[in-house]
């Protein structure tokens, strides 16, 4: 309990004093666990353009973005310390967005989900990409329920 509370009671407010390599979550929906044609896509890519009204609305109400920030923080922790709980958390949240139709994927009888964490690091003008983690394949059904393979 205290390990969770102490950082809040005695905080260090050094947000982003060092710009660490940034993790990006990508996912792939495939028909078989060992499908060689894995088509990775960025999870919730940023919109190319956002109207001013939407920007103002999102200042007050943006649960999807807050969830995405939580998932990035989960991905950072997963890279530091692999954990099946965090891996399951990310798979469940991506599966829920697929079940809601957010990603445009059709879920059939045999559909599997994987995600990977790509670490982006900028050195001058160059941005390097490194795959830091690949999840297990997760069986999906159309209701968003999931079962480990």
């Amino acid at each position: 309990m205290f390990s969770y509370l102490l950082p809040a009671l005695i905080p260090s407010w050094r947000f982003f004093d060092y710009i660490a390599p940034s993790p990006r979550i990508e996912f792939a929906v495939v028909a078989a666990v060992d499908d060689p044609a894995m088509r990775w896509r960025e999870f919730r890519p940023r919109p190319a353009h956002l109207p001013v009204a939407a920007m103002l609305r999102r200042l007050l109400w943006n649960p999807v973005w807050n969830e995405s920030l939580f998932m990035v923080s989960c991905a950072e922790k997963l890279l530091d310390e692999p954990s099946t709980r965090r891996e399951g958390e990310l798979l469940a949240r991506i599966a829920a967005t697929i079940a809601r139709g957010e990603t445009g994927d059709k879920v059939t009888g045999s559909t599997y989900l994987r995600f990977r964490i790509v670490v982006l690091k900028r050195q001058g003008e160059q941005i390097s990409r490194r795959v830091g983690f690949v999840s297990w394949a997760q069986l999906l059904d159309a209701t968003g329920k999931i079962g480990a393979v």
Partner: peptide, 8 residues
């Protein structure tokens, strides 16, 4: 959430 959901 194994830590804060909304960070700071």
């Amino acid at each position: 959430f194994q830590g804060p959901y909304n960070g700071g």
